[in-house]
Design a protein around this nucleic acid. Sequence first.
DNA 1: AATTCCCGCCATGGC
DNA 2: GCCATGGCGGGAATT
Length: 608
Amino acid sequence: MSDLPPEKTNMELSSSSSMPGSSSSLHHSYSRKQKSLGLLCTNFLALYNRHGIETIGLDDASSKLGVERRRIYDIVNVLESVGVLTRRAKNQYTWKGFAAIPAALKELQEEGAKDTFHRFYVNENVKGSDDEDDEEESSSQPLSTSQTDTSKPSLPDSSKIDNRREKSLGLLTQNFIKLFICSQATIISLDEAAKLLLGDAHNTSIMRTKVRRLYDIANVLSSMNLIEKTHTLDSRKPAFKWLGYNGEPTFTLSSDLMMQAESKKRVFGTDLSNVSVKRSKTHDSATERSLKMKHHAIAESSYNRIFDAHESRHGSRGYEFGPFAPATGTYPTAPLEDSSKRAFDVENLVSDYRPSYQNQVLKDLFGHYMDAWKSWIAMQQCWSLMILVGYMYKDVVPGREYLHGQAEKYDDMVEFLDKVAKTVDTPEERNLLSIAYKNLIAGRRASLKRTRSIEKKETKKGNTNNVSIIKDHRVKIESEIAKICDRVFNLIDSHLLPSASTADSKVFYLKMKGDYHRYLSDSKTGAEKIKAVKRTLEVYKSAQAIALNDLPSTNTLISTKAALKTAKAVSAITEMHGVREESYEETALIMSLILDRITLWTDELKWS
DNA sequence: AATTCCCGCCATGGC
DNA sequence: GCCATGGCGGGAATT
């Protein structure tokens, strides 16, 4: 992987205590990457891929992200061509979410298949499918392609003349994607793609431009995890690999641009630790009315707590937002059991494996939420705070955080959640609750995954010293996962479920419970795992039963994905252990139930 | 030297 | 005209 490039190991991270006094442009020799389209897109998604976002204003986006409008257009265009966004009006886009991706892809695929031939006939009566108004398309060109194409049935070509200004980005993106999904080629290099896409002369200058554009697109797509950069199998040429839609990735606000824009209008960015409770009462009365006071109280107290946490972290030792640079793997192999040395090892280890740009700046997050804070009614504040807190804990990367003894904080978090959760009783609240918990556990799951893989690698390398440290860490994470799950079970069993009045909510909680059993099973091994999986299955089944009986099909919440995953897990396990029980039957049962219903669920993935 | 791709000029296309 | 969009290519940063 990484070699030993020179690299400046350190870089100025001034961020910590920025003075209000204008931007003293220190050498912002910030590497190019920090302004890259991909990163920008990641931030964009992190910013908008959350709850309650309906419409997106371009101005808003550009100022929040601190970039020129032009760049937003780039992002928005490619996002739109994948269905995540739709243009609503001038300056206004509608957020559709990642859930819209599969449908869009499918459509593209069909379209692509058709394009391969079918070109003579005008054909097409159009709009068999629903999908709002999605026209354009057309692009009727006289055939004339064919001729060679070395391999696969590839795609059409966007010929030369074509009128419609629909000449680029949006369309190009779609065609690019078609390249992948309409042929079995999984890896394509950009100039290959460019060649295919314009199908004719290698007119250098045209090509060049096209490739530039493809880079743009590729960056955005890869920030969505739809593709990934690798290289062709044979040669070493860089290329992109299609990953497809695999559930939505978790985004992490990692911007640094954000606050420079922010600082212009809000003072938040500058000095968070100063913010005190007094302002939390400021919100305009208007909407506020008969709200449950307790919510308010809870919100407030935890609000303080968060800031305390933040502050202390800040004060104690400038929270290292981490050198983004890959730092390259050269941790000392010299085993030393001196404890300080050990710690050092871990530090290196962590930075070695830290994904670039992963670390987040809590400050930014706060700035964002603080802004919103003022206009939210107390209830929302409370719940959203939970989500926020979930976010805070979500990005804990392996190593540093735990080592520095921050881990206990999450107990506060859970406690807080529990307290609030007991008053849940609307669908919306349920949803929020589940999101909050999900955020809480998502980080742990990701950590675990990463940690396991690192552990494996290090084991192979034989760095026993490191391995033992990592193992400690892993165990810790596992126990945290278990703890969270326990809380969830407890909460559901003793509060939520008993007081659930509608079938709808019952199913929701059961499904949630099932999910957490599943998460739990992921973190276990051996016999325990089997047990956990079984339980998962049971819970899903009971949820399913209720759903089948009492719910109109439209409301079914059980996620096919989750159920399928479970089923898979079960069969994998049983196989592995030769445990040949009725597990198979259960699996089969679930599967058939799913298949039975699957048609009804097709287009509602709203509950991720 | 080749690859990657940011920046922003300026052509469009509404109003 | 003005403003929102968004091609498009120079040329700088990175590899």
